[in-house]
């Protein structure tokens, strides 16, 4: 596999202590296709950032890199001041191994477009299995927390239901509860309402808005729903071809975009929607 040389490790303590996520010259290629092209950006702790942009602009790849579902081709990702995509070794930084990743991704949770609930477990088990197996919680403890989370997402009566017997909206609520059960500090939302029937979208968005407002989570959200982006985020990044075109608060990006590319994209979204 071709991996670009890693830049020299940053100073032992990162300059700005409150960066939760830092992308430093991150490159991601799939074969000849460059998806992320020397990308630099920071996300502060508790910041809620929405990534917008046309399909193939690299938004989902950023989430997948953070969830360790993909590895960087070049550059470095840091989370909470520590190397994330790499680990110390051989006098510098080397690509992270499974052991490093398992510790590193402890802080991160993800909700997927297609929910990806486990069909071989009921709803409660979907939520409690990871806390029990991976965080070492007792079954009772995990189930108590699971019941609270199900209550929060409005599915307290579905604990022993099978995922296949739930609607798309209900499955996505369970997936949200499942991600939160791992007590992440960073929550990644990957087009979480794109696979839902139109009448179920509002409920899930409303739930996520409440979570965003009431929790201390750092949120990275990829969405094509501009209203949702405006509601949930305090910062919007406009992507095109693996680079950030515009970066600003939602009022500015949606109200008075500075870049022509952003204006064109928003215009296209409005016309399509």
């Amino acid at each position: 596999m071709e991996r670009e040389p890693v830049p020299a490790p940053a100073d032992a303590a990162p300059a700005a202590g409150d960066w939760m996520i830092r992308f430093d010259q991150v490159v991601k290629r799939f074969g000849d296709l460059t998806v992320l092209d020397h990308l630099d950006f920071h996300v502060r702790a508790k910041e809620r950032v929405t990534l917008i942009g046309p399909s193939g602009s690299g938004k989902t790849t950023i989430l997948r890199l953070l969830m360790t579902l993909e590895r960087v081709t070049g550059g470095l990702i840091e989370v909470d001041g520590r190397p994330f995509s790499h680990m110390p070794g051989r006098g510098g930084l080397v690509p992270a191994n499974e052991k490093h990743l398992r510790v590193a991704r402890r802080k991160i949770g993800m909700v997927f477009q297609q929910f990806n609930l486990f069909p071989n477990m009921d709803v409660m088990r979907n939520i409690t299995e990871a806390p029990v197996r991976s965080l070492g919680r007792s079954r009772e403890e995990a189930e108590t927390r699971g019941a609270e989370l199900l209550e929060m997402v409005g599915l307290a009566d579905k604990a022993h239901e099978h995922p296949a017997r739930l609607s798309g909206g209900q499955q996505q609520r369970v997936a949200i509860a499942r991600a939160l059960a791992m007590e992440p500090e960073i929550l990644l939302l990957d087009e979480v309402t794109s696979a839902l029937d139109p009448e179920l979208v509002a409920g899930v968005q409303c739930l996520l808005r409440d979570i965003a407002q009431e929790s201390q989570l750092t949120i990275l959200c990829v969405t094509h729903e501009m209203h949702f982006a405006r509601d949930i985020s305090d910062r919007v990044l406009m992507f095109d071809r693996g680079r950030i075109v515009e970066d600003g608060p939602p009022e500015q990006i949606f109200g008075e975009p500075r870049e022509q590319r952003t204006r064109d994209f928003l215009q296209a979204v409005i016309e399509a929607g």
Partner: peptide, 13 residues
């Protein structure tokens, strides 16, 4: 995606 959900929930291989 089932495998990926397993990674996202930090299950070991």
């Amino acid at each position: 995606p089932q495998r990926e959900a397993g990674i996202a929930l930090n299950f070991g291989p």
